[in-house]
Design a protein around this nucleic acid. Structure first.
Lengths: 325, 325
DNA sequence: TTGAAAGCGCTAACAC
DNA sequence: GTGTTAGCGCTTTCAA
């Protein structure tokens, strides 16, 4: 049996409350008592029982990662895998576990309410956040939510600087001599897909280049379809920037199916820098997406108490120039 | 504030103990009391507080996914991502969260001991399990551990039938006219890499074909290196079966770098059926690996109490014939 | 079959 | 600065 606070207190010759105060790190305690308690705790290998602590503080012991989307299928995505894994690794030293749920986009309130009432829930990390989801957040969750994507005054946001990445990538394509760059965006309902669109428009406007936008949903299939639409509408397109590597890979397949050479006829760039971007042939030019760091930041914010985090934390992305663009 | 057991008991007009017995599902209770308690619980929307329950039962509230390996870098792997995500989704309805840790292969005992003593830990799912890890498992963890990989009499094992998959794949290659098939295996220290090797030897023996084995570590880089070694040692090799898609893709790159055509000169097959396998050009022939189902099985076993599971649960894998083989 | 009572390990008022 | 006391919500003897 692991030692309890009582054991420590007894060994240190103080009361349980004093031991608790010392170990919790706040509340009054004499230096002498401090030393003795700490020594005893060390010597016994004491670690506070998080369950008991959670019971009395009402803190909650698990972090819920909620992925907003139209159907539970949104969970089936390597991106989600990376978020969850990073959160699970981040929580481990704090003894908080992670559970994963699908947050229905059309009616998020019931689940959100249940989570708010669940005493086991330490806090929430929401991904694919929309304004509607933000609005549906019960007050009881205040200060315990972080968003990967858009945030609000109360909800801190953690996300990649995809606007900056877009600017950099478009400039990269222009610098390589491409003139008619089409962009495959994320789905319209995701607010965080707006920044790349704006950045693209700005870059195109400044350079006097055309704007060619087609939406996708981050999957390879949607990239394939998007490339087909682009070629149909604007046959002279000489570069495609897809905002996910999967879409970029799909686009390449579609381009080749039409007999076009990549990058000879059309350059293609992706976004995310998944492991296979480097392995595909030709290797894919893309921009980094530090998903693990973002998720770790969001998880840490929730565990620490989200109200102390700055409203927006943007993670830099940089262009990885390979063969396709 | 969510309703407590006291609220339910009061509403049902019984004592807290009776309500507890009814809701827990065991212990004596009259049918009348049963009905009243259940109705009250329903009506109030009662959900037991897992923290309080854990405190008294000592059951633990989180599932630890431990990945054995030489360094913390083993955590940085899409395979791990899939395991963790599936476990996190599986635990969610049971209010158990998942945390992820690295289990040092050379000295697993200290961490294992800490986990065994941690009252917050419900149980363990271990991946990349070795016999040494199994031997180091403290008795306190008995019945609360499931292994993805090798198991033992006490530790149930959940894994893909990679032996069967290997047999099927080798036969597929022979049937396609390949005669000198080399295999890139997993690292030697992983016991679960043995079955594919045995299956390969058997198939080769039966067919009177040569045995050509080279170890890898499941990464693309190792696949590349392995393919180079294969060509150096056995230049007439006409097929490579790599036991991960990443290695297969690496092997293809190496083959092409030597001017060989895939599948014209050398067929290549992988294992895992990662999303990118279908997208690569030429598309990769591989075998499925239901990682999510395996992890869900292991997680469920731990949550339910692992001693009730059969000692070995093998998940079928089937060949997905595409262009490379 | 039921309820009273004890207690899981901890924190937090509140007296001293 | 310190110790006493009272719970957090639940399960579980044990006596009725």
């Amino acid at each position: 049996m692991p030692p309890t606070l009582d054991d420590v207190a007894r060994a240190a010759g103080v009361s349980r409350s004093t031991a608790s105060r010392v170990l919790a790190g706040y509340g009054p305690a004499s230096p002498a008592a401090r030393d003795r308690v700490r020594a005893a705790a060390d010597q016994l290998g004491y670690a506070p029982d998080q369950v008991a602590r959670a019971l009395v503080t009402g803190a909650g012991y698990r972090l819920v990662v909620a992925i907003a989307g139209a159907s539970p299928a949104v969970l089936d995505d390597p991106y989600v895998d990376r978020v969850v894994r990073s959160a699970a690794a981040t929580g481990a030293p704090h003894d908080v576990g992670v559970s994963l749920v699908w947050l229905p986009l059309d009616d998020p309130a019931p689940l959100l309410r249940r989570l708010a009432e669940d005493r086991g829930v330490r806090g929430l990390v929401i991904a694919n956040t929309t304004d509607a989801v933000l609005a549906a957040l019960p007050p009881a969750l205040a200060g315990r939510v972080a968003s990967i994507g858009v945030g609000s005054r109360e909800i801190p946001s953690f996300d990649v600087d995809n606007g900056g990445a877009t600017t950099a990538m478009i400039h990269h394509l222009y610098a390589a001599g491409r003139r008619r760059v089409a962009m495959v965006t994320g789905p319209r309902w995701m607010p965080c897909t707006q920044r790349p669109i704006d950045a693209y428009r700005d870059a195109a406007g400044e350079a006097g280049m055309p704007v060619r936008l087609v939406p996708g949903d981050f999957t390879a299939a949607s990239g394939r379809a998007a490339a087909a639409r682009i070629l149909d509408r604007w046959p002279d397109t000489d570069a495609v920037f897809a905002t996910s590597d999967a879409m970029a890979l799909g686009a390449i397949a579609a381009l080749r199916a039409r007999g076009l050479d990549v990058p000879g006829d059309v350059a293609v760039a992706g976004f995310d820098d998944i492991p296979f971007a480097a392995l595909s042939l030709p290797s894919l030019t893309t921009a980094t997406h530090p998903v693990e760091r973002i998720a770790a930041g969001a998880a840490t914010a929730v565990i620490a108490g989200a109200r102390t985090s700055p409203p927006v934390t943007a993670y830099a992305s940089h262009v990885v120039a390979r063969e396709t663009a």
